[in-house]
Simulated scan of single mutants.
Amino acid sequence: MPASPLSDRRVVTLLALFCCLLWGSAVPGVKIGYDLFGILPSDTSSLVLFAGVRFSLAGLLLLALSLLRRRPVGVTPRRLGQLALLGLISTAGQYALFYIGLAHTTGVKVSITTSTSTFFSVLLAHFIYANDRLTTRRALGCVAGFAGVVVVNLATDGLDFTFAFMGEGLIAIAALMFSLGAIYGKRLSADMDPALMTGWQLFFGGLALVGAGLATGGHLGQVDWQSLLLLAYLAMLSAAAFSIWSVLLKHNPVGQVAIFNTAIPIFGVLLSALLLGENVLAWKNLAALILVSMGIWLVNAVRNAPPVAAPRP
């Protein structure tokens, strides 16, 4: 059987980097959204509601596209439960933590701390998939990546370690949930269209966030054409990035795809500097980006091994 074009390394690289560009743009985009909708960093309920509206719209967009392509969107009750669980992990849980953490730290720190999802994925895949073993190079890549996270959290004088649980802590936990969701989603996509899977999980996860936000008094204070346009962009980027990522995970080992996730800091830091005026040239940010990039190279520069397609039971 011929290999899928989606397993070609050049195709994987281009598509994965495109996803990372979209996700990187979401870092400053969400913070701009807080201003446009009049959401204060301390207003947790409204932060969660904002996330829920974004992802439920993204899910509806994907389901509508499936209908336009004349593809069935119905699923069995058992599969519906699995998709709801995936939505709670990958969308509701992850992004509730992400949005709250994002409001309590800088876009630069978020971009780099989010890269820990790559190293969580590499470590988890070692215990789940026989063709995703943790090698010496991958271990060194994980160390380099986490070193980048440590460096970006150093104070300006380089002596004090500043780490806020409500900021960087929640972002790191969200990164772990992203990794868990990616591995669970890979299992579900084995016999399901990745775009349909993504649409349902985003919709379920988004609804859970909307419900939680409304139940605790959340609201979107200012709604105008600018805020709606930004919300539409955030929904579309989520629909596109998650769908493409799910397709790549379906046709490739988790570790080979997940390592590209560390490109998000590169795009996120540059776009945060451009759109938010954050200082990208600070020594700690540049050092962190170098370390994260080194982690990408080390994890990705593995020697070819005989393929083992089946995951461990």
Rank of each mutant, 00 (worst) to 15 (best):
P2D: 11
P5N: 07
L6I: 02
V11K: 13
L15T: 08
A16M: 09
F18T: 15
S25L: 12
S25C: 03
V27W: 09
P28F: 12
G29D: 11
V30E: 04
K31I: 02
K31R: 15
D35R: 13
D35A: 15
L36V: 05
G38E: 12
I39R: 05
S46R: 05
L47S: 04
L49Q: 04
R54L: 07
L57Q: 08
L62S: 09
R69Y: 09
R69Q: 15
P72S: 12
V75L: 04
T76R: 13
R78K: 10
A84R: 01
A84W: 02
L88K: 00
I89K: 06
T91W: 02
A92M: 11
G93H: 08
A96W: 01
L97W: 01
V110K: 11
V110W: 05
T116P: 00
Y129N: 10
T136E: 01
T136S: 03
R137T: 09
V143K: 06
A144T: 00
F146E: 04
V150I: 15
V152H: 06
L154H: 06
A155Q: 15
L159N: 13
F163D: 10
F163Q: 04
E168N: 10
G169M: 13
L170R: 00
A174P: 00
A175P: 08
L176N: 02
L176M: 13
L188M: 13
S189A: 15
A190W: 01
D191G: 10
D191S: 13
M197C: 08
T198M: 02
L207H: 00
A212C: 10
A215H: 04
L220F: 06
L234D: 04
L237Y: 06
A239F: 04
F242S: 13
S243E: 02
V257Q: 13
F260C: 08
F260L: 04
T262I: 07
L270R: 03
L274Q: 06
L275W: 14
L276H: 07
L276P: 09
N279V: 08
N279T: 12
W283L: 12
G295Y: 05
G295Q: 10
N300S: 15
R303F: 01
A305I: 06
P311G: 07
